[in-house]
C-alpha cells in the first residue's frame, strides 16, 4: 500500500502546485530571483496583460495539467498492477 499512498500524495500535491494562481506566482518568483541576483528583470511589468490573455493562459495551463495527470494516471495504474502482484505472491509465500 505504501507505493499507492505515495502516488496519491504526489498527485494531490501536483494539483495543489498547478493551480491557476501559479501564473502570477511564477512571475513574481522570477522577479524576486532576478532582484536577489541583481540581474536585469526579465519581465516588463508595465505591459499589463488583457483579461483575454489571462484566460488563454489559464486554459493552456489546464491543458498542461491534463497531460501531466494522464502521465501520472498511467504510472499510478502500473504501480497498482505491480502492487497487486506483490500482494498475491506474498500471500502464496
Amino acid at each position: 500500500m505504501n507505493k499507492v499512498i505515495a502516488s496519491v500524495i504526489l498527485s494531490a500535491l501536483f494539483f495543489f502546485f498547478a493551480s491557476p494562481c501559479s501564473v502570477n506566482l511564477s512571475k513574481s518568483t522570477v522577479y524576486l530571483s532576478a532582484v536577489y541576483a541583481q540581474q536585469e528583470i526579465p519581465f516588463d511589468n508595465s505591459n499589463k496583460t488583457t483579461v483575454q490573455d489571462d484566460q488563454e493562459d489559464q486554459s493552456v495551463l489546464y491543458s498542461v495539467m491534463a497531460v501531466i495527470v494522464v502521465l501520472w494516471l498511467g504510472i499510478f495504474t502500473y504501480m497498482v498492477k505491480l502492487d497487486r502482484q506483490v500482494k498475491k505472491l506474498k500471500r502464496k509465500l
Binding site: 504526489l10 500535491l13 501536483f14 502546485f17 498547478a18 501559479s22 506566482l25 511564477s26 518568483t29 522570477v30 530571483s33 526579465p42
Partner: peptide, 10 residues
C-alpha cells in the same frame, strides 16, 4: 513539479 510550475519561465 514545483520548479516546473513555479520557477521556470515559460
Amino acid at each position: 513539479i514545483a520548479l516546473a510550475f513555479l520557477w521556470v519561465p515559460s
